[in-house]
Amino acid sequence: MSEPTRLAVRKTYKLFIGGAFPRSESGRSYVVHDAKGAFWANASQASRKDARDAVSAARKAFGGWSGRTPYNRGQILYRIAEMLEGRRGQFIEELRTAGAGKAAATAEVDAAIDRWVWYAGWADKLGAVVGSANPVAGPFFNFSTPEPTGVVAVIAPDSPLLGLVSVIAPVIVTGNTCVVVASEPAPLTAITLAEVLATSDLPGGVVNILTGRRAELAPWLAAHMDVNAVDLTGAPADLVPSLEEAAAGNLKRVLRPEGEDWTADPGLGRMTAFVETKTVWHPVGV
């Protein structure tokens, strides 16, 4: 008697909005191929209304997330790194399906986890490095501290895991919340990352991940009046000028790096790009 064949349990890749995994409001999806050009999976194709819902979710989560102590945010980010480590094999498998060799895939996943841990450590240290106690001509203690900018729209680069974590971690570690448009050709790893985020104490809405057409979603996010900053790292070059113009509508902060090398030392630039400096004058002796 032959072994009964198991029914294939295929994964449905959906969006990640407000801590839940909804399908696109539009009902659309698009086919993602593996390295050999064969069918891999269907990814949700988000619409502008999904982007709008994601911004609402991010705005709702902002107060709570930015109000946590940096130490607590660091702990939660470290918890995410633990979960990433637990799914190491799955990420390596996904990168290999996407075309990376075994050694390269392993190296990228390890680098991504290390990158996440590196940013997690910055949570309660950035304030000491970029903040300051200022000498002033008067009886005041005068402090400058970095404060999160708000809701950040992130157009993620095509590097499926290392690039993705390198743009998300620095945004949320300082207390921002974000709406991420995942890589158009490689969206599936982003949704697997969302599964990690959903199971690691990160409050719903702090990270929202959309998959779909960048050219369709990016302009709505860049023009959205309730978004405070945009990271154009993965935006198509021909779209960048119009996105910057749209972002000027409510004076969003815009990060527009070129030729990022994800394996290099990231520096503080991506964290300081999305913080505001708040200066407090506190009377001496009170």
């Binding site: 709008r52 911004v55 705005r59 709505w220 023009a223 959205h224 009046m225 309730d226 749209a246 509508g249």
Partner: peptide
Amino acid sequence: TGVYSGPDY
């Protein structure tokens, strides 16, 4: 205006 507004306004 054609762009999404926010509660700030």
